[in-house]
């Protein structure tokens, strides 16, 4: 199986503080990988390195086959990213947002046109296409943001708490889109605070105090911790955490 992400002893140190402490894991192509951890565990720092936004202090990692030290720009071209906090420009229309992101990622003008028509009809947003994104309800915004994040057909998409605050029906529609992207071969790397969503991942890792304390399928983790909820698995792993933060 081809690997989308490989990390080996990945470490990021700020002074004496090891935000990410010798983390090693692989993510397979087309896998939905849940990246969980307590607040302050080091998830954001690790994710920034994997997105080519920050250099590690030591260790190795490749993303889509590119090196996190030497090929940051190539990484950026081959990934998509969305988060709850930043996704689209509120004061651009839906179409303008699509055009803008498509352009930034080097999709040709003709291709942008075809794909955006497709996208808008799949999402059923024909009437809203020329409306400002700021006028859309949050659930729609998040679904659109995800579609835009994979518009340039990246190999990997990074999702940072994509469903925070979204209603339970939309949250599930969002996961349908994630499944579909994965079925089309896009690797999905996702963080969430909803433990039921952890169950939708092929495998999950749980970070505690900068280290990956557990990594397995949800079923195996529940077996190992002798419980039937992911909530409990997470609680058992994270309650001993010394660090806490945003």
């Amino acid at each position: 199986m081809e690997k989308a992400i490989i990390c080996k002893n990945l470490t990021k140190q700020f002074g004496d503080f090891k935000a990410v402490d010798s983390v090693s894991f692989d993510v397979a192509q087309g896998e939905i990988f849940g990246f969980l951890g307590a607040n302050g565990a080091g998830k954001t720092t690790a994710m920034r390195i994997l997105c080519g936004l920050s250099y590690p202090t030591s260790g190795e990692a490749t993303v889509a086959g590119f090196d996190v030290y030497k090929q940051q720009e190539k990484i950026k071209r081959n990934i998509g990213y969305m988060s709850q906090k930043f996704s689209l420009y509120d004061n651009l229309t839906i179409l303008e947002n699509i055009e803008f992101y498509g352009g930034v990622y080097g999709v040709s003008g003709a291709e942008i046109k075809t794909r955006s028509n497709e996208l808008i009809s799949t999402l059923g947003l024909e009437k809203e296409a020329k409306k400002l994104v700021g006028e859309l309800p949050l659930g729609w915004k998040q679904k659109l943001a995800f579609s835009v994040a994979i518009f340039h057909r990246p190999k990997i998409v990074f999702l940072d708490e994509p469903t925070g605050g979204v209603d339970p029906v939309t949250r599930r529609q969002f996961w349908d889109m994630i499944y579909e992207a994965a079925a089309n071969g896009i690797t999905v790397f996702v963080t969430t605070h909803y433990m039921d969503e952890a169950e939708y991942c092929n495998r999950i890792s749980v970070m505690v105090d900068g280290r990956v304390e557990a990594l397995d399928t949800p079923a195996n983790l529940k077996n190992r911790f002798n419980t039937n909820t992911m909530d409990d698995v997470f609680y058992q792993l994270a309650r001993g955490a010394k660090r806490s933060g945003d």
């Binding site: 433990m195 997470f234 994270a238």
Partner: peptide, 10 residues
């Protein structure tokens, strides 16, 4: 408790 992890929420 929005955005807070399971342990702190509890």
């Amino acid at each position: 408790t929005t955005g807070v992890d399971v342990v702190s929420r509890k």
